[in-house]
Amino acid sequence: QEALSARLAKTVVGDPSMEGVRMGALVSRKQLEDVRAKVGEISKVAPIVFGDAEKVSLVGEGLAGGAFISPILMRSDDPWNADAVHEVEAFGPVSTLMPYKDLDDAIALANRGKGSLAISVFTHDGGVARDMVLGAGAYHGRMLFLDRDCAKESTGHGSPLPTLVHGGPGRAGGGEELGGIRGVKHYMQRTALQGSPRTLTKVVNQQLPGAPVVEGERHPFRLRFGELEAGYSLLTAARTVTLDDIEHFAHFTGDTFYAHMDEEAAKASPIFGGRVAHGYLILAFAAGLFVDPAPGPVLANYGLEGLRFVKPIKPGEAIRARLTVKSKALKTPEMGEVRWNVQVTNQDDELVANYDLLTMNAV
């Protein structure tokens, strides 16, 4: 209480455009009246230990009649018999100190309000943090855990992030905070599209599963960003993977995992049933099948996304790759990102691996 009071005493209230002012006004005089009334109700069971709901020193000119209030700190020494602390919300710079016996008691007190937008927990103990999530998570829309590692960079208890669901259950509304893109979407027109993959691919300019592909005469790596369209595709020739390929790759990379090098152990595996090729060998061979090596519009390969190995390849089996333009996004006037879907199949046309390849292409 003493430490908080000392910090709150340094809070300068007034015109927020002035140097040194840390807190401005409430939204309106109506809110000010509501906060004062709620503070009066709570203070019957939790006396004010810092601040004054009726008086505040202000910094700035022409502030008379503004909706300004002092930071208020109250204290309840017997929170289980102080219903107003949990039932009444003073929607302003108002806090109440409450003691707790142990972690279970703290969790129960935190949940006594029957729902909140956010709760801040100060602990450097991961076990305590986990217990708080399991015990209090259902009652709070967002849980902020602060410790010595992240306190200096924290955005604070009251700063929801656009990517988070920041809406509390129960009394807090049961919904989502109208922040970031979540809030914008409530005011945007949105239309659901239904149709065949062929039609919708043309509409959204993105290759969708099931849409037909177009195999042109020119290698896709010979086409500039502006010449490529979603669905433009290349089906490569096949390549047989040999046991020598697998062993060379294993020794060259150092990846001598038993599934590639120990026939007896690999046969005992319920997944492999014998020695198989490395997943990354398959990726490397697939690249060798679809890459056009000469200088051209493809400037760089900068990553794979959504990689899945679906079916293993055994020595003597063959692979081929289908490279298809999935989508495009212009990044600068000189270059754009091309997202390619790569499907690697075996000699029976069964899917072996699937992923998205990202390249930067000249416009």
Rank of each mutant, 00 (worst) to 15 (best):
A250N: 03
A230L: 07
V94A: 06
L358A: 01
V241L: 01
A238V: 08
T240C: 06
L178E: 04
A321S: 03
G175T: 08
K55N: 03
R148S: 11
F91I: 00
K202S: 12
A277R: 05
A321L: 07
P71A: 05
L109Q: 10
A362K: 14
Y232V: 12
E227A: 01
A46S: 09
G66C: 01
G141V: 05
T155S: 15
Y258D: 08
P209M: 01
P293M: 09
H248I: 00
R218L: 10
A321F: 02
L281I: 01
K10P: 00
P209N: 03
G273V: 08
L307T: 05
L117I: 13
V35K: 04
K114V: 15
A192M: 14
L8D: 01
L117T: 11
D104L: 02
D349R: 07
D147K: 10
A192W: 11
K311D: 06
V128Y: 00
E19Q: 08
M143R: 00
S57H: 03
I181W: 12
A265W: 15
R239H: 11
N301I: 07
L164I: 11
P47N: 01
I69E: 04
A172L: 12
I282G: 06
V352L: 03
T242G: 02
G92A: 07
V363N: 10
A192K: 14
A37P: 13
N341S: 09
N205V: 12
G20P: 04
A172I: 10
P169M: 07
G126Y: 11
A266P: 13
H140F: 07
R218V: 13
R75Y: 15
V56R: 10
F91W: 05
G168R: 00
Y280A: 08
F91H: 05
S269M: 02
D102Y: 06
H157F: 14
G226H: 05
I42K: 00
G24S: 05
T191E: 14
L304Q: 04
G174L: 08
A192C: 06
G60V: 04
E264P: 05
E41P: 00
F249V: 08
A238E: 08
R198L: 14
R322H: 04
D292E: 13
G126S: 12
Q206A: 15
D104K: 06
P209T: 10
R224A: 13
E215R: 15
P333L: 01
M335V: 12
V338Y: 09
R198W: 11
A106R: 05
A9H: 08
F68N: 00
E263V: 10
A259S: 13
T96W: 04
T345W: 12
A25G: 06
A237M: 11
A284S: 14
Q343I: 09
V363L: 12
A64E: 12
R29A: 12
L178W: 08
G158L: 14
G274Q: 01
K101Q: 06
V56N: 09
T163M: 15
K30E: 15
S70Y: 02
G279Y: 06
A67T: 04
P162I: 05
P270S: 11
A90Y: 06
D245Y: 04
L193V: 06
G137T: 11
V204I: 09
Y139A: 14
A37R: 15
E61C: 13
E215P: 15
K55E: 08
G175P: 02
V214W: 14
L161I: 15
L357H: 09
Q347C: 01
D349S: 05
Q194C: 14
G170E: 08
D292H: 06
V39Y: 04
Q1Y: 15
H219L: 03
V213T: 02
M74C: 04
